[in-house]
Simulated assay, not measured.
Amino acid sequence: MTRSSTTAGALQEAQLPVQAKLAAAWASFMFLYIYVDYLHLYKPGSIDEIVSGVVHEFDTGPTFVALALTLMAVPILMIVLSAALAARVNRATNLVVAALYIPVSMYNVAGEESWSYSYFYGLSIGLEVLLLAFVLRAAWMWPRTTRATAARDLAQARA
């Protein structure tokens, strides 16, 4: 038995729901976001600044810690929300949050004085923005159902 060369090695594409793609993108974003913060600790003088109570010229008091937690909590919650919210709300939430986090990602390097780490920060911001662009595209391109399909699904749900 012989197979044609066009079908012999063909792999079937797995169709993931948009919610799963969005949740995976937010999880990837969070891993990157947290590792950038962690790897920043390897920069000489970084831990000394933290011990002295200053990070990028901000006092590390309760306000700073609460804001830092909020900046981390939003993408963390987006993992769950992307998997759990209804399609219309899910799409809107992902579009708004991803659009807001692009300037947040870029601002994170604004206080950086050492350009010797510019490759590190450029790469990290580039990857974060790339993931956020993926979220924006996936949410924007969310497949729509036709009115006939939606009416049928609604009728089945009522029955």
Rank of each mutant, 00 (worst) to 15 (best):
V55R: 00
I79M: 01
L132H: 00
M30T: 10
I102D: 00
A20W: 05
G9V: 00
G61T: 07
T60I: 02
A98G: 04
I76V: 13
E113H: 14
L85R: 06
L127Q: 14
L32A: 06
Y42E: 15
V129C: 02
S82R: 04
T146H: 02
P103C: 11
L69Y: 08
A150G: 01
H56A: 12
A14I: 12
T6V: 14
A159Q: 10
F64I: 05
L67W: 02
E13K: 14
L136G: 07
A87F: 04
L131Q: 13
T145D: 15
S118K: 04
Y117L: 10
A133M: 14
V55G: 00
V89I: 01
F134Q: 01
L136Y: 02
A157G: 06
A66P: 05
G9W: 02
H56W: 12
L32K: 09
V51G: 02
Y42S: 15
T60W: 01
S116G: 15
L130D: 06
R152D: 15
T7H: 10
L32H: 12
T2N: 13
G53A: 05
A83C: 05
M141L: 11
S5C: 04
Y119S: 13
S116A: 11
A27W: 04
S118E: 07
G45S: 05
A92W: 09
W26D: 09
I50S: 04
L22G: 09
A68C: 08
L136F: 03
S4A: 10
G126N: 14
M72H: 13
